[in-house]
Design a binder for these strands. Structure first.
Length: 222
DNA sequence: TGCCAGGCCGGGT
DNA sequence: ACCCGGCATGGC
C-alpha cells in the first residue's frame, strides 16, 4: 500500500479532474452557512435550498430576526427541509447559544480556539460532530475535516476503514495525512460528496468508471 | 412506489 | 458501549 499522504493527494487530484471545483459552501453569508448546516442534517440539499429561500423571503436570514421567531413560525418556514419541528428547535437552540455566549456576534465566536468552540457547539442539543465541523470549517474557516456518510462509504469501499469506524477515527485519518490547509479540507470534502452521489450511494453497484478506482493501488475496488 | 438525502437524540439492552 | 426507532419533505 502506498503512503497515505500520497494516496490522499492522488484521490484529491482524481476527483478534482473528474468533477472540477465544487465551490462549497454555497451561501451569501457565514450565518447562512450556520443555518444550512442544521437544515441539511440527513436531507437533500435541494430541499434545504427551498427552506433557505423561505427564510430569505420572510426577511429572517439574520441572527437577531431569526432567533425572535417562535418554533412554530420557524418550523413552517423550514418545512421543505424535512424534520421541520425538530430542526426549528435545533436552530433556535444554536442561535440562542450564540446570542447568550457571544452576544450574537459570529465573528467573535469564531475567534475562539477550534477545540474550545467545537466542544461548545457539541453541547448544544441538536448539534453533532458533522454539523459542528461544517460550521467550524465552512463558516468559520477553522481547520477541521468534515466527515459524513459519503466519506465513510468511500473509505470503507476502498478498504481503508471498517464500515463502522467512528467519526473521530475517520477524521483523524484525514487530518493526520493532509497538509493543514482549510481550502483543501473544504474542497476535498465537497469532492467526496460529489463522488458519493454518483458512485457510493448505499445501493450503488461497484462501478468501473469510479474516479477513485485504483486509489491506493487497490485495483478492482469500487 | 419505495428508496434515498451533506444527522442526531433518547431509550432500551 | 452499542443498537434502534423516531423525526419528514421532495425528487427520481
Amino acid at each position: 500500500m502506498k503512503d497515505l499522504r500520497q494516496a490522499f493527494t492522488e484521490l484529491f487530484r482524481r476527483l478534482e479532474a473528474a468533477y472540477g471545483p465544487q465551490n462549497w459552501w454555497p451561501a451569501d453569508s457565514a450565518f447562512e452557512i450556520v443555518v444550512g448546516a442544521v437544515l441539511t442534517q440527513n436531507a437533500a440539499w435541494s430541499n434545504v435550498e427551498k427552506a433557505i429561500a423561505n427564510l430569505k423571503a420572510a426577511g429572517v436570514m439574520e441572527l437577531k430576526a431569526m432567533v425572535g421567531l417562535g418554533p412554530e413560525r420557524l418550523g413552517q418556514l423550514v418545512r421543505p427541509a424535512g424534520y421541520y419541528n425538530l430542526k426549528a428547535r435545533r436552530l433556535l437552540n444554536l442561535l440562542e447559544f450564540i446570542m447568550e455566549r457571544y452576544s450574537g456576534d459570529l465573528e467573535k465566536m469564531f475567534t475562539q480556539p477550534t477545540d474550545v468552540l467545537r466542544q461548545q457547539l457539541l453541547e448544544v442539543k441538536g448539534i453533532g460532530p458533522e454539523t459542528a465541523d461544517s460550521i467550524l470549517l465552512y463558516a468559520g474557516g477553522h481547520l477541521v475535516f468534515v466527515v459524513d456518510a459519503y466519506t465513510r462509504r468511500v473509505l470503507a469501499r476502498h478498504g481503508l476503514i471498517s464500515p463502522k469506524a467512528d467519526y473521530h477515527e475517520i477524521q483523524r485519518l484525514f487530518m493526520d495525512n493532509l497538509p493543514p490547509d482549510t481550502d483543501l479540507y473544504a474542497e476535498l470534502h465537497a469532492l467526496i460528496v460529489a463522488l458519493g452521489k454518483h458512485h457510493c450511494r448505499p445501493r450503488a453497484p461497484r462501478c468501473r468508471q469510479c474516479p477513485a478506482r485504483g486509489w491506493l493501488g487497490t485495483e478492482g475496488i469500487s
